[in-house]
Simulated assay, not measured.
Amino acid sequence: MNKYDITENDFNPTVLFASKSKLVEDGYYHDHDYTEITVILSGTGKYYIEGKNYDVKAGDVIMCNPGVMHQSLEANEKEPIVEFVAGFTHFHFTGMPENSILLNDNEFVLRMPLEGRQEIMKRCYEMVAEYETSHLGKYFMLKAQLMQIILLILREMQPVKETQKSYRFESYNKNYVVKKIISYLNENYACKISLDQIAQNLYLSPVYISKLFKEETGESPINYLIKIRLNRAKELLEREEHGSIRSVASEVGYEDVYHFSKLFKKYYGISPLNYSKKFSRQKQ
């Protein structure tokens, strides 16, 4: 038996809005007559809720039920907060007040584990994208996505069985994320790639991805990308018909041939042009 009984009649929320925004200044202390979920997509900062300060970071869920006073405080200038916010009403779970979701220990901030964080962020981005369209059935798609977010939060608050070791899931997911990043880099090295693009593709924060990737591989995602590109460039330069150095640079994702040549020489101790000539002589 689950802690929270959910029935078809009680779980039919009305979606009021969904948005994504960057916090550039402090908010004001206020409340709502509806429930508001905030998910921190990236960055770090502080929130002031019902007289208490909360440090928040990417993946955290902030739950403000009707009448809960709250405001956003200073954000980290180096890591400004980007948040997803959704407002909704008309729902009721057994054991909770109407139109309210009570977090464990009467807290207002829920720190999600990696797996749940990815799932919720994915749906947040999907809701924002859907909210900005005029597609058929838009409202019902938004409702379906919001219901999934709510269910993921409720599941996270369920007690974990002793046979489930959370650290094993965490370790597995770290390995999974790194493999996904490497796969993404190998498939898209010829395109413009930034850490923000990689992060958005995986629904995680750029800072977290960079830290995790370095812990698992010993280098940053961008350095790993450089190695993929330069290794591919070497393969192209070893062909008899490889075109100009500029075309090789372009084929591995570099528009600036000078920058490409500088990187190539830094990694291999020889310029791309001289490498091509040297390899040609060796084959003769």
Rank of each mutant, 00 (worst) to 15 (best):
V160C: 02
Y29R: 12
E115Y: 10
Q148Y: 11
N188Y: 08
Y139Q: 13
I270F: 09
Y34M: 04
Q197L: 13
A233E: 08
G45M: 10
I181A: 07
K180A: 15
L236D: 05
E36N: 12
M147G: 05
Y203A: 11
M63I: 12
K138H: 02
H30I: 02
E170G: 03
M1D: 10
I49C: 03
G67C: 05
D5K: 15
L136R: 11
Y254S: 02
E79V: 01
Y267I: 12
L225R: 09
L114R: 12
I245Q: 08
C124D: 01
I193H: 02
Y254C: 07
N9Y: 12
A129Q: 04
F91A: 11
S21N: 08
K46T: 14
H259L: 15
L110Y: 08
C64E: 08
L202Y: 07
Y184R: 05
Y208K: 10
E255S: 13
L237E: 04
F93L: 14
K22C: 06
E130I: 12
I182F: 03
K262Y: 10
I182V: 13
T89Y: 05
E251Q: 12
N12R: 11
A75G: 12
I40S: 00
M147F: 00
E107D: 10
I101G: 06
L103M: 03
S194Q: 05
G116A: 11
L230C: 07
L195P: 02
Y189V: 03
K78S: 12
E132T: 09
E156G: 00
V177Q: 03
L142W: 03
F93K: 11
N188D: 06
K180N: 09
V207F: 13
K174L: 00
T35D: 01
P113A: 01
S271T: 15
G95P: 14
E240A: 12
I120T: 01
I149G: 04
F11Q: 00
G243R: 07
G27A: 07
I150Y: 08
H90G: 05
L41C: 08
I182A: 08
R117W: 07
K180S: 12
H32I: 13
E215D: 12
H92A: 14
